[in-house]
Design a protein around this nucleic acid. Structure first.
Ligand SMILES: [Zn+2]
Length: 689
DNA sequence: AGTGCCGGGCT
DNA sequence: AGCCCGGCACT
């Protein structure tokens, strides 16, 4: 695919890291294959250096590529528009400053040029690929950017170092940053790349079943919280995968505004995990189980002054109680801010693995929190941190005995005793399984028992409802959204100057889609929205019927009055991209409106709506709308355009205005009277719409 | 078929 | 940059 990696262009020295591992990478994926190939070419070329030139810095590969650079720009996979756009000769390296409406397109091209030496996430197939490209476009300014470039180097590093030293990783990422950042702001780029890096890490440790990290598949947006990614990246150990997949990701999330929201909190995690998260969850449990095993070992057998005497049987139980194990280790992990601790590698040889002991006193409350997060089934209980049993009962939390008898362990049947309160189950465990009475004095006993108690949610919430809940994942903290707000503001500023209106484009991923809804929900009520939201989920391909909402959301961005927000959501491979287009009613033959966008009469299906502006140069910051899927003229003043990015081409072709152009006005026989642009078969500057 | 104009080549 | 034109989109 797009793994073009015109690598030599901008990525000189550091990429040597990759060089060394290119072969290994070749086996990783087809995309990498391509990279490999190119690099091999480079090597070949470099090997051809004569001794005289050996010390020269000349990039021969680059030289070799220069001749074909332009061609490649148009032919390589990066430029998705080639097969999506309506125009065939889409890619253009020229910056036609006259065509301000091309701002978006131009930025696209520029971006593509910058990233020309980059590889797309090769796991995406074509449709998704297109989305990638769109995303990339926005990336120019948005944090959402997923830099393919970043992916390649980081992945290479990870692979080559087999576990990855954070230093190397960082280096590679920095490299990728420089390579891909282009004109975008550095900080954002950092997020971008780290995000990519995090995803790469994920992918490296994700079972083959899920070749693509789940986060990559569905929720890029959820990854730009930067910090968490940083944490993840910084933890090179074997635990990095799980920590990045759940605990650290949440715990390190910088902005807390949602953390108090029980729904969003738990739903956030749920939203970040697609349907197959069960697999991951399972694996996660296993890993943590082992992890905890170590902890437990040291704790139980080395703790001084304890009566504990854990007999073999109980020990066995612990080993084989994933739930119980997960509780602790995960809580431990979480409270260490990202799961950086590793019991096996910890230099600290103290009896307790760091973090375990301090947790003991809060074991139970924390457990609830952890469980609710670890177990997607329990998302409902996310708000139960430190809550009492009353709360649990209220919230439908029950406690289940997970004790497994020796003779029944083969069939993995646990006791299954369920009670409303933890204490009840604890009593049960003491009496039924431990065959002793519960001595209230030993808190440790409670801890022991706690291992056999599983917290769960009463089966009150049906699965469909759950999926519904996890949709509500709000993301106000999403930097990209902030970024886009700024973008819009900038665009408006530019427009205010010439009273032109703005075509504002949004394209986001799934998360952002929800994020928008979250804003709605902030203005209105969450619960009211949810059903509505659900409906919209089902009609993602369709036009939104609630213009009011959209306007309510985005009117802030506008300077002129009768603009209409139009939104389209596209679902391709579970990645939804939404773009909002703000248009101004087209008023034919109005010279004053000459510098406005306008929406062409709709030709549904083939994408008739195009956005045009005839004021060149004035709207550099303005983005234009590529061909939408549908277009509607809902009224004289309001044009609603539903845009489908799935079919969205890259360059909006200028709308053919109603006004006659020089050619028609003067005729071929008076060609000399034409404006120059018309003479040149360019957009007419004299009779612009 | 005519028109508008994008993309790109040439100078 | 100026000029030109192939060819596409749309009428
Ligand atoms: Zn003209």
């Amino acid at each position: 695919m797009s793994a073009t990696a015109t690598r030599p262009v901008d990525i000189p020295a550091p990429l040597n890291i990759i060089y060394g591992t290119s072969r290994e990478l070749a086996s990783c994926s087809c995309g990498m294959m391509h990279l490999t190939k190119r690099i091999e070419e480079v090597r070949l070329l470099e090997s051809r250096k004569s001794a005289r030139l050996a010390d020269s810095d000349t990039d021969f590969a680059r030289l070799a590529d220069v001749g074909s650079d332009r061609k490649r720009a148009s032919s390589h996979s990066i430029d998705v528009s080639t097969f999506i756009g309506s125009r065939k000769r889409r890619p253009s390296s020229s910056n036609d400053s006259e065509r301000s409406y091309n701002a978006w397109n131009d930025s696209t091209n520029n971006n593509n040029n910058n990233n020309n030496n980059s590889s797309h996430n090769h796991n995406h197939h074509q449709q998704q690929h297109h989305n990638n490209n769109n995303r990339q476009t926005s990336v120019v300014t948005s944090t959402q950017a997923q830099s393919p470039v970043a992916v390649a180097p980081v992945q290479a590093t990870q692979t080559s170092t087999g576990g990855g030293s954070s230093a190397t990783t960082t280096g590679a990422m920095n490299l990728s940053m420089t390579a891909s950042s282009g004109g975008s702001e550095p900080q954002e780029t950092v997020y971008m790349d780290e995000c990519s890096a995090a995803m790469v890490l994920m992918s490296l440790s994700t079972p083959p079943k899920n070749p693509l990290p789940i986060h990559c598949q569905q929720s890029y947006g959820s990854w730009d919280d930067g910090i968490s990614n940083r944490v993840t990246i910084g933890s090179p150990g074997t635990n990095s995968s799980q920590s990045s997949s759940s605990a650290s990701w949440r715990s390190a999330t910088p902005s807390p505004p949602l953390s108090d929201d029980p729904i969003s909190h738990s739903a956030a995690w749920a939203a970040a995990h697609p349907n197959n998260h069960h697999n991951n969850h399972h694996q996660l449990q296993h890993q943590q189980q082992h992890h905890h095993h170590n902890n437990h070992h040291s704790q139980t057998h080395q703790s001084p002054g304890q009566v504990p005497v854990v007999d073999q049987r109980r020990f066995y139980h612990r080993q084989h109680h994933p739930y119980a194990v997960v509780h602790r280790s995960s809580s431990h992990r979480r409270h260490r801010g990202g799961g950086l601790s590793s019991s096996s590698s910890s230099p600290n040889n103290s009896p307790y693995d760091e973090g375990i002991v301090p947790d003991l006193d809060q074991e139970r409350p924390r457990k609830k929190r952890i469980r609710s997060i670890e177990n997607d089934e329990d998302y409902m209980s996310a708000n139960n941190t430190g809550s009492s049993s009353d709360n649990d009962v209220k919230n439908g939390i029950v406690y289940k005995c997970t004790w497994r008898d020796d003779n029944s362990r083969q069939n993995s049947r646990s006791c299954g005793h369920v009670a409303d309160t933890w204490d009840q189950v604890a009593d049960h465990v003491f009496r039924q399984h431990l065959q002793r009475s519960r001595s209230s004095s030993f808190e440790d006993e409670e801890d022991e028992v706690d291992f056999y108690i599983d917290e769960m949610v009463k089966p009150a919430c049906s699965p469909p409802t759950k999926s519904h809940w996890d949709m509500v994942r709000p993301r106000t903290e999403d930097p990209e959204y902030q970024k886009q707000l700024r973008l819009t503001a900038a665009a408006n500023a530019a427009n205010a100057a010439n009273a032109a209106s703005v075509a504002h484009l949004h394209h986001n991923y799934h998360n952002n889609y929800h994020q928008h809804h979250h804003h709605q929900q902030q203005q209105q009520q969450h619960h009211q929205q949810q059903q509505h939201h659900h409906q919209q989920q089902q009609h993602q391909h369709n036009q939104f019927n609630h213009q009011q909402h959209q306007q309510q959301q985005h009117q802030v961005h506008h300077t002129s009055n009768n603009q209409v927000a139009t939104v389209a959501a596209v679902n391709s491979q579970n990645i939804d991209i939404m773009r909002d287009v703000y248009t101004v009613p087209s008023q034919a033959n109005s010279a004053a409106v000459g510098k406005q966008f306008k929406v062409s009469p709709a030709t549904a299906g083939t994408g008739g709506a195009q956005v045009a502006t005839s004021s060149p140069s004035a709207q550099a910051a303005v983005a234009a709308t590529p061909r939408p899927l549908q277009a509607h003229n809902s009224s004289a003043n309001i044009s609603l355009v539903t845009v489908s990015l799935g079919k969205m081409p890259h360059s909006p072709r200028r709308v053919r205005g109603e006004t006659k152009k020089c050619r028609k006005v003067y005729g071929m026989e008076h060609k000399d009277l034409w404006c120059t642009q018309c003479k040149w078969k360019k957009a007419c500057t004299r009779f612009n719409d």
